[in-house]
Amino acid sequence: MAKEDSKVAMVAVLTIIMILSATVLTFVFGFTKPKIDAYAAQQKKKAILNVLPGATKYKTIQKGNLELYKGYDKNGDLVGTAIETKGPGFQGMIKLMLGMNLKNDKVLAIKILSHLETPGLGARITEPWFENQFKNKQFNDKFKAKSDVKAIAGATISTQAVSDIIENTIQKVQKVTDGGE
């Protein structure tokens, strides 16, 4: 560049480009947000109903500092209570949905929502046989990998992590609900 750029031009051009960029993004954001939110809500509903077998709708309630989802079947009877929870895994946070029957003190089902475990090893926590083994587990079970929880070969830490998350969450929920429903 032969001629020296003027400072005013530099500031002006940068500012204009920034404003244009922000304008464009505002429109794109406004246009895509409803779709993104709808997907998130739909995923959440699917996950909640997934861990409360038989439930067709749910109600969100606040107990202490926990957000609980009460699931009801088509006759309006309470199926169970679900909660979204997370805890440290082998590599990152494991997020899961936990469905419980607080009357009988047992787990109804779990669903892993997101995780960063090793592909092929810890990532197998999302496989049905693994998730299903927590069905009907009593709250006072040991939740110990290789004992009452079948461990994934080569991924005992991930297995134990999921068990710990479930056990800790149950305790938290029991504390706020005081053993009731």
Binding site: M1, D5, S6, A9, M10, V13, L14, I17, M18, S21, V24, L25, V28, F29, T32, K33, K35, I36, Y39
Partner: peptide
Amino acid sequence: PHKVRIPCYIVVIATFVTIADYVMAA
């Protein structure tokens, strides 16, 4: 202007990346 070309290019690129990000999420 030549001196501020890199920040300008990056803002333009970042705009398109963000569009791609939103559209893919939706």
